[in-house]
């Protein structure tokens, strides 16, 4: 399954920045610099961005324009980052958000 449109009948080739790598829950993924983090994740087949605080339900892209905040993740250690409007940069560390933190942080809190 490839989610990237190679050539569009109206828009032609869609211009992208340079190819960069970033990590998603420890896996190294490729994307294009400057595109929304969510676009790179989508292209890599990632659907679940976070699990909710109360019910632990999976959430992903919903509005794609930064309004609904469903696609928030932990980016470079910072939670609640709207991945649909945050540009991707080389070496970013993107983690699935559980409630308001990354999974590893949750464990640490549990032990403290």
């Amino acid at each position: 399954m490839n989610s990237r449109i190679k050539e569009h009948p109206i828009l032609g080739k869609i211009e992208k920045g340079r190819r960069v790598t970033f990590s998603h829950d420890g896996n190294i993924i490729e994307g294009f610099e400057g595109e929304p983090i969510s676009a790179a994740l989508k292209a890599a087949g990632v659907m679940v961005h976070r699990h909710t605080q109360k019910y632990g339900a999976p959430r992903g892209i919903f509005c794609a324009i930064g309004r609904c905040t469903d696609c928030v993740m932990v980016v470079d250690g910072k939670p609640n980052i709207r991945t649909c409007i945050t540009p991707l940069a080389e070496g970013m560390i993107v983690e699935t958000q559980y409630g308001v933190s990354a999974k590893s942080t949750n464990k640490a809190e549990g032990m403290a």
Binding site: F62, C63, R67, C68, T69, D70, V72, N80
Partner: peptide, 8 residues
């Protein structure tokens, strides 16, 4: 009153 402020 959450993050989206009732947008949805």
């Amino acid at each position: 009153m959450g993050l989206c402020q009732g947008q949805t």
